[in-house]
Nucleic acid binder design. Structure first.
Length: 735
DNA sequence: AACCATGTACTTTTT
DNA sequence: GTACATGGTT
């Protein structure tokens, strides 16, 4: 009896095939993680030093789970296996060697928001007409170029006949220049620079080739060109590369995923073994058949037939509702019923095409008091207050990070405005130094008048934080920064509910910092910031958390749930409008693969739903039922168009939509709506005088949140609205 | 410099 | 419908 007895024939074959390149075509739910973990166990059993084994996953969550499962299987030694994501892997390598490429090893990682601000700045600087060339397009173009391992120079040569692309090449060049000046790398750079490092420094490549003699890559269908480049470089020497993927689940083409990586694997790695895992252990026959029938409509795919020994199971339920409010309401009702029947909330997932669709569900869950968790959308670390505090930490960690410094220089308010910042920046450029260093030299900047002292005070503050960073723990530093800047005090003074939520978020950030400090072997500020930069929302999804999970179909990849609701099954939503109007047939096929991914997440029961009428971007849209629904054979579906088809009572929906605002600010209290100043010395109908507009008659006084809004009809300037505390109106004698 | 009011663009999906 | 950018006002 061995641990391998529980595997089926193909799985066992894959586990025992340890030498040479191996392509594992693993259908949804075919137990690929089991194969990978058992394969690692087998390698170790065969005498391979765990130190020589590397497994690359797509998310941190997948990496963590794999490590746990390997730990359970092999016991000691497993901690030496390198299990991580592409991005973390690259960071680890670059932290040791990037100085060879002229960067400082303590580089900062820029997220997409940082990326955007940097590009925005460059577009302004170059006077780019962002109407014809939006920043977003520039960003995507640069990102794609990096995915294809194309330098700015190469980009320029390649596209020099195209006016727009030439412009993009210029921006790309400047963008890289500024990143380097800020000692920062964006997400794409992490891979790009690692490949570059291996290219220009064969001795470094050789070191890692020796180290990673056995490489495994999960979710291989979603790798892009540069990721492929990276792993093929590493595997070149020993050729022990095992990739696991499913071409039917390739859903990241928009992000550069290159399906050729999987389709041409055998061409690139000669003598590659190919093993197919086609038995599904996850879903019922009905669910699996539906998935097969849908994906069958795609042309560009490797033929395969997923099968299962599981029961037929329940029929798939399909409802078309009148509106999205009904849809969400009924789904939440059904979830309530399931819970009553003893189903755990965490066994239920709601999937949708776009993050924006989550909002209505959130309302309904709040009303029904059902615990839920929304994955994705606005990331915790993207919130303003969290980002502000992080930028203080960044400024302490990497003084060259101009973006971080500029973000916080006037947060909280220090009276440092755009003009002052420009002056400092000009000086920095003249002296060829970083922005913060320019602040330290404020004394030499002649153009600064009154602002000089403010800048000096700010740079002293940062210097003080640096000193503190040397002395104490990260937690101490965090408290010290909050205390010295008065950030939380300021929020407390605001007293609004929103401010209280922000304070909570800052406390949450503190919890994360403390947790990091406890968990990390050698906690450092750089390490903390790195971890923050590389976490995805999905990574924090804990199995112990008993809540209904809501997320996009993309985020759901790799997960499974007994009960799955796929909502918004409408042409124009899913498949999305963009892919319907696109001439490129491939795009619709990608949507279909996404649908396949969604269906195959379900283990026991699948609910599909659509709305006839849906509000999108403030407009009502009438959508047809998704073409993907038509591709599912009728006999698998329990059709139920009936219920609300003739419902002519939209009032209910409008009612709940109006109540929305209340639920978004659930703790709205009135105690803070303190009517401002004493009463005013004038009233409606009185004659008043204004310093600029002269004489006028008061038309109306409205008592706003913290001030009176006064409408005055001025004799010479007409009707104006103004706030009493600013306007300084004086009552004058009546005519 | 800071604040508010108004206008505009956005939505595909994310490590 | 919202988040952000802009312009006007003190």
């Amino acid at each position: 009896m061995s641990i391998y007895d529980t595997l089926n024939e193909q799985q066992r074959e894959a586990v025992f095939c340890t030498e040479g390149p191996l392509l594992l075509l693993a259908g949804a739910g075919s137990g690929k993680t089991r194969v990978l973990t058992h394969r690692i166990a087998y390698l170790i059993e065969q005498g391979v030093n765990p130190y020589h084994i590397m497994a690359i996953t797509f998310t941190n969550k997948a990496a963590r789970e794999m490590r746990e499962r390997v730990d359970a299987l092999v016991g000691s030694g497993a901690e030496h296996i390198w299990v991580s994501t592409f991005h973390s892997t690259c960071v680890r390598i670059l932290r040791r060697h990037i100085d060879k490429l002229g960067y400082d090893n303590s580089f900062t990682i820029y997220d997409s928001d940082d990326q955007k601000s940097l590009i925005r700045g460059i577009c302004k600087q170059f006077r780019v007409d962002t109407k014809s060339l939006p920043e977003r397009a520039v960003m995507n173009a640069i990102s794609s170029a990096k995915d294809e391992f194309m330098t700015p120079g190469e980009y320029e040569t390649r596209y020099n006949f195209d006016f727009k692309k030439k412009k993009i090449a210029e921006i790309y060049k400047e963008y890289q220049k500024q990143l380097k000046a800020n000692n920062a790398l964006d997400f794409d750079d992490l891979l790009f620079k690692t490949v570059e490092l291996f290219q220009f420094h064969p001795e470094v490549l050789d070191y890692y080739q020796e180290r990673f003699r056995y490489i495994m890559v999960d979710e291989y269908q979603d790798t892009n060109t540069i990721q492929f480049q990276l792993i093929s470089m590493l595997a070149r020497k020993y050729q022990n590369l095992c990739v696991v993927g499913d071409d039917d689940q390739s859903i990241y083409k928009f992000r550069g995923a290159n399906i050729k990586n999987i389709l041409n694997f055998e061409g690139v790695f000669q003598d590659a073994e190919v093993i197919k895992l086609e038995q599904n252990y996850r879903s019922t026959k009905n669910i699996l058949n539906a998935a097969n029938e849908v994906i069958k409509n795609n042309k560009g795919r490797k033929e395969k037939a997923l099968w299962t020994e599981n029961d037929d199971g329940d029929s798939i339920v399909f409802h078309q509702y009148g509106t999205e409010y009904e849809e969400a309401g009924q789904i939440v009702e059904e979830i309530g019923r399931l819970a009553k029947d003893g189903v755990n909330y965490k066994n239920i997932a709601i999937l949708y095409r776009t993050n924006a669709q989550s909002r209505i569900f959130e309302e309904k869950f709040m009303i029904k008091n059902i615990p839920y968790r929304i994955v994705g959308g606005m990331n915790f670390y993207q919130r303003k207050e969290v980002k502000d505090v992080i930028c203080y930490l960044k400024a302490v960690d990497n003084g060259l990070d101009d973006l971080a410094v500029k973000r916080i220089i006037n947060v909280p308010r220090r009276g440092i405005g755009a003009t002052t910042i420009d002056k400092v920046q000009t000086y920095a450029i003249e002296q060829n130094i970083g922005f913060l260093d320019a602040c330290f030299e404020a004394r030499q900047i002649e153009s600064l008048a009154n602002a000089k002292r403010k800048i000096e005070k700010f740079s002293e503050l940062i210097a003080d934080f640096r000193e503190q960073a040397q002395k104490g723990s990260l937690e101490d530093l965090f408290h010290y920064i909050l205390k010295q800047t008065g950030y939380v005090t300021g929020l407390e003074a605001e007293g609004t509910e929103e401010a209280l939520v922000r304070i909570e978020n800052i406390n949450e950030l503190l919890n994360k910092i403390v947790a990091y400090e406890e968990a990390a072997e050698d906690p450092t500020l750089s390490g903390l910031l790195e971890e923050i930069a590389l976490v995805a929302d999905i990574d924090s999804l804990e199995d112990s958390d008993n809540r209904v999970v809501l997320m996009t179909l993309h985020s759901a990849k790799g997960l499974e749930f007994p009960y799955v609701f796929m909502s918004g099954m409408e042409d124009g939503i899913f498949p999305s409008y963009m892919t319907i109007i696109s001439e490129d047939q491939e795009e619709l096929e990608e949507e279909r693969r996404l649908c396949y991914v969604g269906i195959t997440r379900a283990k026991e029961r699948l609910y599909l739903s659509a709305a006839k009428r849906r509000m999108m971007q403030g407009r009502t849209q009438f959508n047809k039922v998704s073409r993907f629904i038509d591709e599912i054979p009728q006999e698998l579906l329990k059709l139920d168009y009936g219920v609300n088809l003739n419902d002519k009572r939209p009032d209910h929906d409008i009612f709940s939509s109006n109540r929305r605002t209340q639920f978004r600010k659930p703790f709205q209290k009135h105690q803070f709506a303190e009517p401002k100043a004493e009463s005013l010395s004038y009233g409606a109908g009185d004659r008043v005088s204004h310093i600029k507009f002269g004489q006028g008659t008061v038309m109306e006084i409205v008592s706003g949140g913290r001030d009176y809004e006064v409408t005055v009809d001025f004799d010479k300037h007409g009707v104006k609205k103004m706030f009493a505390s600013f306007a300084k109106l004086k009552k004058t004698e009546q005519n």
